[in-house]
Nucleic acid binder design. Structure first.
Lengths: 344, 344
DNA sequence: CTGAAAGCGCTTACAG
DNA sequence: CTGAAAGCGCTTACAG
């Protein structure tokens, strides 16, 4: 392999010192004559010079590299959309991303943090699969960091705007003329240990909007475990409680999936007989017939925002509707309109 | 932030030279007295010394870092499962992963390759969303590299064992007593431009096994575009051609999904009336009712194997049933047995 | 306006 | 068995 071109080569070719070349190539040429600058640029160009990052890091302590540590990367949509958003913004700032996964092991979490720190990354993006509150022990860094889908003392936190999304679901139903509404999936009181911190917010948004609209739920089915089975049982239950409902709010897409199945068995058609709206926009939602109208968890945007924050850029540049509360940056959950809600 | 501990600190504390400390800590202590070694290890331990990777890289040209460049990372399961596999093996070799995504842009592909090379990564993992043959121009590196889900002159290639999977699908059906079988999704002759290089292999495996079993297809529906719609139309078509089929081979899960829908409309139940077997094991497959029996694309294992090859480790250590042909490493596609095939 | 020199923290011949 | 020294390729005071 051909020897790597170094600063010294450029200096030699341009007839200048390494110091001058370095200054010019780093755009600190305030006090360098235009002629010299130009000669240096041409020489660097002709030789195809690129600085050796290891040498730069050794000297400056900067790596142009960000760490993305996530507790789970295998899962659908979560990490992969987030990575996509991160990569996009990182590239625009000439940063590369070093990845690690901890599979929910505190030891691996600590180990990843330590080795990334040892590699002198310029910042940390901490991605959580299920939103929770990180303790101080989780981030033993005096280093720029941001948590995605979680919170932590003193560092920026990127979260989906669940409260707003909850409101929007209700407002959307109301705007389409629905008044008799059932809710499937509210966690029973006291089940909060199982829940991520996003769930109460989603519920509070729903409740607030119902109150604002002057409505109460015609029926409810409570459940912490948000899987298809809960939706199936929930649908049967609310049908029993209030056969005249015109719409169902499912706490998430998996529940909605179960609701569809129950309705289908009962010969109830969506949305002709009963409308359904939901949250998350998992891949699943796009396969359902009719297509499920749902509020998307904006993973890609959350990744973008996290990276922007680390780069001191304003997330509002890329994402409209972002709002901040304290050290929380709340990313809007877009309403994905498909065919599961009918206008009354 | 406290100053970083360096080799010199350890040397000072242990009363040895930096050279000796370096030797000991890199396990090249053949000619160092045990006492000195021990003193040095203790000192390093007590000070919490870790070498500065930038300095090591500058000196040795090694980074303990691998590049994962993929043309698409956003897509379900593909990249994220692959990343998972890569990370797992990388961690066991104390390597970190630098990620980039090119979104199918040749410019970004080249740029990523160049900047990774500039950062002196120790090896390249090139991940392709749709299997194809890379040209020389795509990998202008004289550097360790491996392609996942693709081929390239002179470098190792990790591919799913599609031929074997095709055979297995047929053998499974035959073993369950099926003889009247329809195939949905064979690409029409001359449509090869649309296809990835895996498709002909899948088909060849199917055909070989049918021949071996002394069977021919009772009905076929050809299509390049493997989406739900093709499955729906295909199911209706094969039903027309041969109403007495007992099983359908769908070219992939999306086709199977459409087949289910058509059958449901016709009141045909899976698997009681007709069995269905498929390929890929997309997330979708796990949601279908009844659960779809399918041959999984082993993305995680492909990521593992790629990393192992780069690390000069034998993939057979982790993955059973791997076979090699030339510079191809073929990873078995496991049969995921669910409930869509009935024993006759 | 520009250059010589020090130093970031390692590893590796080389000398003894 | 061990140490002194050079050098990897940069950047940054400092001197002129």
């Amino acid at each position: 392999m051909a020897r790597r071109i170094t600063l010294a080569d450029v200096a030699l070719k341009a007839g200048a010192s390494k110091a001058t070349v370095s200054l010019v190539l780093n755009n600190r040429e305030s006090r360098i004559s235009p002629e010299t600058s130009e000669r240096i640029r041409v020489a660097a160009q002709e030789l195809g010079y690129t600085p050796n990052p290891a040498a730069q890091t050794l000297r400056t302590g900067k790596t142009q590299t960000l760490a993305f540590i996530s507790d789970e990367v295998l899962t659908t949509r979560f990490a992969s959309a987030m990575i996509h958003g991160i990569l996009e913004v990182a590239e625009s700032h000439d940063q590369m991303i070093l990845m690690a996964e901890t599979e929910h092991s505190p030891q691996r979490w600590q180990k990843s943090l330590a080795s990334m720190k040892n590699r002198q990354v310029d910042g940390f993006i901490l991605g959580l699969m299920r939103a929770r509150n990180l303790q101080k022990v989780d981030i033993p860094l005096n280093q720029p960091a941001v948590v995605v889908n979680g919170k932590a003392q003193g560092i920026a936190s990127i979260l989906p705007d669940e409260h707003r999304a909850g409101q929007q679901a209700v407002e959307y139903l109301v705007a389409h003329g629905h008044k008799k509404i059932a809710l499937i999936g509210r966690p029973p009181a006291g089940s909060s240990e199982h829940a991520t911190m996003n769930i109460p917010r989603r519920m509070a948004g729903i409740d607030d909007a119902m109150r604002t609209a002057g409505l109460g739920f015609s029926a409810e089915y409570q459940e912490v475990l948000w899987e298809g089975e809960a939706g199936y049982l929930g649908a049967l239950a609310v049908l029993e409680q209030a056969p005249d409902i015109s719409a169902v709010i499912a706490a998430n897409d998996r529940i909605a999936f179960g609701v569809y199945r129950a309705f289908q068995e009962r010969g109830i058609s969506v949305p002709e007989d009963i409308s359904v709206i939901s949250f998350d926009d998992e891949e699943l939602a796009s396969y359902m017939h009719p297509g499920l109208t749902t509020l998307r968890l904006p993973y890609a945007q959350m990744g973008q925002a996290a990276t922007q924050i680390l780069m001191q850029e304003d997330p509002a540049n890329l994402i409209s509707g972002v709002r901040s509360e304290g050290n929380e940056v709340l990313i809007p959950m877009p309403l994905i309109e498909r065919d599961s809600v009918k206008t009354l």
